[in-house]
């Protein structure tokens, strides 16, 4: 069988599909001061999952606000700095109108994912954290 660490090198998706891979990637991102990108990515996925359930509107609004406050509101945050102004405005509008749309974080998640795929992920695969693990 293929060892997990080789699977992690196949794609970002393979890495994020494995608990140990996530943990190691987080260790690396912490060193780079950008672990929030990973948490934001998972928060967006979790939000979408919640969205697919009926009801619970109050919880959805509360969660959308919490995600916005923690990762997007502060322009100096590592996530906020990477998200396009138009995307941030869109999310802010949704929150302001208390209109929690299933797609409200999708664009922001895609932007962060692209950045991880093009930047953090390749760096991770050549990092000491990963190489020592292998």
């Amino acid at each position: 069988p293929t060892p997990p660490y080789l699977k992690w090198a196949e794609s970002l998706h393979s890495l994020l599909d494995d608990q140990d891979g996530i943990q190691l990637f987080r260790t690396f991102l912490r060193q780079e001061d950008c672990a929030d990108m990973l948490d934001f990515w998972f928060a967006c996925s979790g939000f979408r999952k919640l969205e697919s359930h009926e009801g619970n509107e109050e919880k959805k609004v509360k969660l959308a606000k919490a995600i916005y406050k923690k990762y997007i509101l502060d322009n100096s945050g590592v996530v906020s700095r990477q998200i396009k102004p138009a995307t941030k405005s869109f999310i802010k509008d949704c929150i302001g109108k208390l209109h929690v749309d299933p797609a409200m974080f999708e664009q922001a998640q895609t932007e962060i994912q692209t950045l991880m795929e093009e930047n953090s992920y390749p760096l991770f695969l050549t990092s000491d954290v990963y190489l020592e693990h292998t």
Binding site: L16, D17, D18, Q19, I22, D39, F42, A43, C44, S45, G46, F47, K49, L50, K59, K62, L63, K65, A66, I67, K69, K70
Partner: peptide
Amino acid sequence: IDSEDDLLQECISSAMPKKK
């Protein structure tokens, strides 16, 4: 603040893959 953090943490955990 605490409950917001808890909610966020719960949300992040819900999106993580389950232990294989």
